[in-house]
């Protein structure tokens, strides 16, 4: 049986198919690059859904108030009970208020925004999904030529 990796989204809002067949000649780095390309998709979709679930404009205004702090203080602040209260009161709809996963996602979202806004990290060094691997670069060049 051949080895394969498939990602399929067949929903009204989002259609995508990403398939890889691991045939002789396919290297581990090729698999890595393919999986990173799936991460690009999942990350985009998570952010799209987050914008539907949470009022990200209001949330961005809340976290922007903390952008002048140093990293340690910023993390302390977004992990504090007082910040949690602000999120629960102003940002989250009633049905999501006690959702621990969503709160963790918002913390991660905040740290990501902070690092990029303050240019502490480049976008391609925050997660593997933003790294332009050589094979993807070629694919992108092909896509641009089309």
């Amino acid at each position: 049986m051949s080895e394969i990796i498939n990602f399929i989204s067949s929903t009204q809002e989002y259609k995508a198919v990403k398939k890889m067949k691991v045939i002789p000649g396919v290297k581990e780095m090729d698999v890595l690059e393919f999986l990173v390309s799936v991460e690009v998709t999942t990350n985009l979709q998570i952010n799209r859904l987050l914008e539907k679930i949470v009022d990200t404009n209001t949330f961005n205004l809340e976290i922007e108030k903390l952008f002048t702090k140093d990293v340690t203080s910023f993390i302390k602040e977004i992990s504090s009970a007082s910040f949690l209260k602000v999120i629960e009161k102003n940002i989250l709809k009633d049905e999501y208020k006690k959702d621990k996963v969503l709160l963790d996602v918002l913390k991660s979202y905040s740290l990501n925004k902070y690092l990029l806004h303050n240019k502490i990290m480049e976008e391609d060094a925050v997660g593997y999904y933003k790294i332009l691997f050589p094979a993807r670069k070629k694919q992108l060049k092909k896509a641009i030529l089309k």
Binding site: L111, D124, G127, I131
Partner: peptide
Amino acid sequence: NSCKVYLLEKYFSKKEIFPSMH
């Protein structure tokens, strides 16, 4: 950049906060 992400994730996972959602 992968090495940077690798160390970044290792460092922050010890603090149970992640700079990306992966």
